[in-house]
Design a protein around this nucleic acid. Sequence first.
DNA 1: TGTTAGCACTCTCATCCTGAGAGTGCTAAA
DNA 2: TTTAGCACTCTCAGGATGAGAGTGCTAACA
Lengths: 345, 345
Amino acid sequence: MSGEPLTERQETVLALVVHEYIERASPVGSKRLVDRYSLAVSSATVRNEMASLTESGYLRQPHTSAGRVPTEQGYRYFVARLLGDTDLPASEKRLISHQFHQATSDVDEWVRLAASVLAAQSRVASLVTAPLPDRTVFKLLELIGTQGRQVLMVLVLEGGDVRQQMLTLSEVIGQTQLRQTAEQITASCAGLDANGVKAQSSRFDVLGREIADLVAETLERADEFSGGELHRDGLANVLSQPEFADSDRGRNALKLLEERSLLEEVLAKALSPTVGGVQVVIGGEGAWEELRDYSMVLARYGATGYATGTLGVLGPTRMSYGRSISAVRYVAGLMSNLVVEAFDA
Amino acid sequence: MSGEPLTERQETVLALVVHEYIERASPVGSKRLVDRYSLAVSSATVRNEMASLTESGYLRQPHTSAGRVPTEQGYRYFVARLLGDTDLPASEKRLISHQFHQATSDVDEWVRLAASVLAAQSRVASLVTAPLPDRTVFKLLELIGTQGRQVLMVLVLEGGDVRQQMLTLSEVIGQTQLRQTAEQITASCAGLDANGVKAQSSRFDVLGREIADLVAETLERADEFSGGELHRDGLANVLSQPEFADSDRGRNALKLLEERSLLEEVLAKALSPTVGGVQVVIGGEGAWEELRDYSMVLARYGATGYATGTLGVLGPTRMSYGRSISAVRYVAGLMSNLVVEAFDA
DNA sequence: TGTTAGCACTCTCATCCTGAGAGTGCTAAA
DNA sequence: TTTAGCACTCTCAGGATGAGAGTGCTAACA
C-alpha cells in the first residue's frame, strides 16, 4: 500500500480519474478516460495503471467490473500533489468584493454574506463562525439603574464587542454611586483580561467587588466559548449531489449539518489556531466516523491578537476541491481585512 | 362545492381519513377505515360518504381507484371543527419548562432552545424569530472616544437591547465633552422613539445635533427591521417524511426552508400582529404558490408594548396538527413569560 | 520489456411484464 | 337507507431480460 512513489503516468491517470469522478459522479472506466481526454495510450494500458493504483490504495472498485473511484488516500494525494494552484476568476473576485463592500458594517451581516458566497461558489454547504476576540479584554463598564435593585450592566470589550446583562443587587443603590463604581472599575481595569480584573477586585469597596467579579466572570465566559455563532448556508446544494439522491443518505447528511455540537467540535479541533492557509479534511481523517463520506475545506480568518473566526465548506468527498479551496481562501482573505479594519477603527 | 354542512357521519369519516392519512402517509380506502376503526357501518356506506365528501371538495383521489386523500379544504375543516382541543402531556410540559429554566438568560439561547423543542415535539421543521421591541424606545446613550475622531456610540434601548456603532466625527472631541453630550441627549430623549428624538435634536449644539440624528436613524432602522434573526431547527425532520423521499421534492423543501426572505415575508404577512392564539396556514392559503404542499402553525409570542417575536413550525400539509398546535401554543406561552420577565426586570 | 488488440466474462441498470392487492362505482336486494 | 356482490381499474413489487460498460488475461507486436 502506497509504498513506491507514483510514476508520472500514474499521476496523470489518478488526476484524471479524480477529475472525471468529481464531474460525473459515477465510477470511471479506462475506455471512457481514453476517449474523453484523448490520451496517447490505449485503454489497456490505462487499465494496467489503474490496477496498479488500486493495489497501492489510491483507487477502489465499487464492485468487480465497474469503473474505479478514488479512495480517501487518492483524494489526499490529488489535493496535496496534483491539484495545481487554483484561483477564482478575476470577474468573480470583483463581484464578491463588491458585495462585501456594499454590506452594512454589521458583523452578522458579513458572516451571513460570507456563508452565502461560499455556498454559491463551492456549490456545497458552507460554515462560518462569527469572529471572536482571541483574548477577551475589558475596555469600559456602564451601570444603569432601572428600578429597585435591578441594574443593567453594559460591558464594552476591546474590539467594540458589547455584552449586557441584568443583575439584581443586594440593596438599592443610587445612580450616582453606580456611576462612580463603574468609572472606578473602568479606570483601573481597562485593558485587562478576566484574571487581571479579578486581581484588581480587592481594591474596590463591597459594591465594586461584587460588580468586578461579575465582570471577570463575563469575560471568562466569553473566553471559554471559543467559537462565535455558527452560520450555515447552501444545505440544499449538498442534497442535490447525486450521492444523496437516496433519501436516507440525504437525511443523514442533513442531520450532520444540523448537529451544531459536532461541527463546532470539528472546527475547533481540526483547525490549527493560527490564521493563514487553507486546510483540507478528507473523509474525517479517521478521527470522525460521522464524516467518513464528507470532506471539509477550512480556514481561520481574522488576525491573531485581534479576533479570529472559522469558515469553510462541507460536502461529499467527491466535491470540487479546486473550486472550494479558491473560494475559501478568497473569502477568508476578505473577512480578515474586515476584522482588521473593524479593530483598527 | 362545500355547500351544505356535513352530516355527523361525514364528519366522522373525514376526521378518520385525515387521521389515518397523517399517520400512514398513503391514500386511505373505505375497507381499511372500517377495519382499523371497527366502524358500525359497512365499507360500502363509507364509500358512499367518501364519494359525497369528494364531490364537495373535502377529499380527493390521487387516481381512479386509489384511496382518498384530504384536500386543503378538508384539512381546514378538520383543524377548525374536528380537531379537539389538544394539549401536551403534563410530563412533557414539565420537561420543557425545566429545560427553559435551566437555560442561561441569553435571548439567543432561548430562541435556539425554543426552535429545538418545537422541532422535537412537532417532528417537523421549526422557525423562531428573536423577540423585537414593538416600538424602539431610546433609553440611554454613551459615547466613548477611542482615538482621533473615532467614537464608539453605545445605545441602550428600552427592554435592555443594546446597539453599538463606530462613527467618525468631523473633528476631534474630548472625552469630557462627549460625556456631557451623551448625558444631555439621554436626559432629554429617554423614553422617546425615533421621531421624538428627531424633534428634540434642534435643542442641542452642533455636536449634539449630529449625534442625536444618528441616534434617531439607528432607532428608525431598528423599527424597520421588524423581525429578529430567524432561527430554524429540525430540517431533517421534514426530509424524513415519506412525501419527500423523492430527492427532488426533498431538495425543494430544503430550498424553501433556506429561503430566508420568503419565510420572513410569510411570517410577517400571515400572522396577525397581536399576541395570543395559534394560527394555522394550510397549503399557503392561495397566497404563496411555493407553500402549496406545506402547512405552518404559527404564533406570536411576547407582549404588546414590550417586545414580540414569531415562532412556529413548517411541514407538509400532512402533518400532525394536534401535536404542532399544542407544542406551538405551549412554547409561545413560555417565551412570552420570558419576554415579560426580561422587560420587567 | 512495455504496449496493445482481442476476447470471454461479470455486474449493473433500465425496461418490460405480470400478478397480487387494494380500491372504486354501480346495481340489486334486504 | 344500507349493504352484499361484482366487474373493473390502477399501482406496485418482483422477476426476467438485454444492452452497456468495464474488467482481467493472454498473446502478439515494436
